[in-house]
Write a protein that binds this DNA or RNA. Structure first.
Lengths: 227, 227, 227, 227
DNA sequence: ACATGCGGGACTTCCCGTTGCT
DNA sequence: AGCAACGGGAAGTCCCGCATGT
């Protein structure tokens, strides 16, 4: 089973390289040659692991979806059905978009018009946000007259916009930017009683969690991240 | 100069067809053959008018930018430096995104990762929103503690998100959706005194203007369109 | 008849421009667009005067052939059936190759493998040299045991080589180079009695004739040219 | 490394086919489709071995240069620094021009105006002739008053002319033609004492070697050619 | 099982020579 | 004469098998 080990490594570097190239050039303009070269393997090796370009892209999306799933589940586990869970999850997502090429590449593929419409990534994120805000609504965490679905649509639109704009300008993916958004949104969305407990910048544990176990975490200093 | 007339028509149908194909497939996956075929002209005719695929895309973006300019200037002309101008402009933009393939194709190109970063369309829209909200801020139209720039960022992110999500799901480009967003945003952004006068659904003239006519033949002079 | 005048001028500048581009790029790589642009006329004008690219090339060859004809006839008129006539003609030809783009372009076309085999220019030059040396042979101007045809072949080969090599390196078209060749050839080719009267550098009148009436004659100073 | 064997064969047949087409049509007019078809391989195979049309042409030139190198070195090895080495080499060259398509195609490319000026083939041949005649001059093999460089220029011009004229008329590449040239040149170039030993038609070994075998399969290792 | 070299077509962008219509 | 348009290729790229090592 020593062989298998190398295969796993090859497969992983292939996905990594693919995510990078997809993120840089988009699906259609990315060439398999560039991907296999960046991964340091031959063209044939690529086709041994992934039958086609689409299959490779699917794998990238799949891995990004797994990361997204971990991320949202962790947020809910910590914050329950509160609004804070959504705030935290958006922060983690935006942070990943800036640091994890697989997530970035996955969303590039999910957004692109050239691939299948029922992108797992988009619907997964949108479903989670909707579900979470519906729970918050049921739990009375939302302000009077604010429907959970409407709030969810707004949150999804904002994050989608940040992702799209962040492709060319990293400042859209900064924590400050998103914090500013929540500071404009929370007073209107949240029930007055719970408003004081909400942290626009994301709860400390969230920030800590996002920083842990991620290679090349060049995030903000802890003092700032907590502020 | 009768000949020039046909050239104008050919050029226009080329831009129209290009916008459609770009919107459907994206820049990289769009083939010039598909564009010239849809425009009903030959491959050579395409290259007579546009030296390269990029030049064609530039022309599409340019025409979309012209539409956007008309749109924003009209909104400001009607509503001055009020928040309502921004509300109206977003409605008109979203409406155009749903109806005018050139605008849709232009934003698809502007968003795409495969083309130049300094897309006129994006910066033009962002600049206008920022400028408008700064004016509103100076005019006291914004609520206490709300900075014009922050609000502008939020508006830009929301519209960008709607455009991205609207590529696959038209419901994101519906008037109701945007109206719902403004109903969540305006109470927080607008100064309390002016809040009552603001219409989340866009001012009537704006709505009427955007709904009439503009399907796909925008920009062609009437005299030519009739010929 | 004013119209005709302009037509003649247009036709001439077209041939001139065509000769330049053909000489620079070769027949196949020369584009009609480049030619019409250099001539300062429109694409349509070109096709009004010349039905096709080949017809244009034929015209260039034809004009070069006319120049070559003038040149050889002048040499024979001055020197009769002597060897000197051939020497003079080669000098004039090489000189024209360096200065007259039409001659240069014509020979480029004649040499090129992509066009018709029975190039007028080549056969015209070869025929004249053979005929001249046959006459010289009959007149006893050639050395013992030297056949006119063989000598003609040698002369044709040398001039063809100079033309080919001169395309990349002008020094092959210098008067000195050709003079050096004749100094090696004449002692073997010419009859001993007439050898003293032969001038390897070409007879003075020949040099003078070639210099007269030619624009941009950047030839050698008279003292050198005569030596 | 069994696979490599087929690659060598493919590469070789590609060069062979390219040389043929280049020789027939010239560089610009030769299409890669015609080349790959003649070689019996696909378009993709061609581009696997040669990145571009220019790279393919370079390979043809390179192989022709190798043949030329073998040829000249063999002549010098047999005849030393004598004039006979040059005579033999010219015979071998002219013979190859008539029989080896790679050599013919290589010179076609080297001569063409559409490609790089510093063609290896031309300079290689010219350098060798100049060097050889300089040696002969130093060795006293040249007649009084004959400079080695001048003689070299003449020889190079003659061979270049034969190559150019031989493209349309094979008789220029016949042994008789070249022999006739040397019979005109040697009495003037060679020192009187060594003249008797020189053979205008080329030394026997040279003639035999050049006539045997070499048709188009030069360069392919025997083991591969048999497979 | 894993990886590679080599080759196969098809497609795309772009250019070019040429031709109507005015 | 000239603008506009046409249609045919040509170069180059790409995604993908297939036979072959290791």
């Amino acid at each position: 089973m020593v062989k298998q080990e190398r295969a796993v490594r090859t497969r992983h570097s292939l996905i990594q390289a693919a995510a990078e190239v997809f993120a840089e050039k988009g699906f259609a303009s990315a060439s398999l040659g560039a991907i296999s070269k960046r991964a340091g393997v031959s063209n044939g090796a690529l086709h041994f692991h992934f039958a086609s370009k689409d299959a490779l892209a699917d794998a990238v999306e799949e891995e990004a979806a797994a990361t997204l799933r971990r991320l949202t589940e962790a947020a809910r586990a910590r914050q329950g059905d509160s609004l804070q869970a959504v705030v935290d999850a958006t922060h983690e997502l935006v942070c990943s978009l800036g640091q994890d090429v697989v997530v970035r590449g996955g969303f590039e593929l999910a957004c692109g018009v050239a691939r299948r419409a029922d992108s797992q990534l988009r619907v997964q994120w949108q479903s989670w946000v909707e579900e979470s805000l519906r729970r918050a609504e049921r739990g009375g965490a939302l302000a009077e007259g604010v429907a959970g679905v409407d709030a969810a649509h707004l949150v999804v639109a904002v994050t989608a916009g940040m992702e799209a704009l962040g492709r060319e300008d990293d400042s859209w993916l900064s924590r400050q930017r998103l914090t500013g958004f929540w500071e404009l949104l929370l007073p209107r969305l949240a029930d007055q009683r719970g408003l004081g407990a909400l942290v626009s910048a994301g709860s400390p544990l969230s920030a800590g969690a996002s920083a842990s176990g991620r290679v090349g975490d060049a995030g903000l200093p802890a003092s700032v991240a907590e502020g």
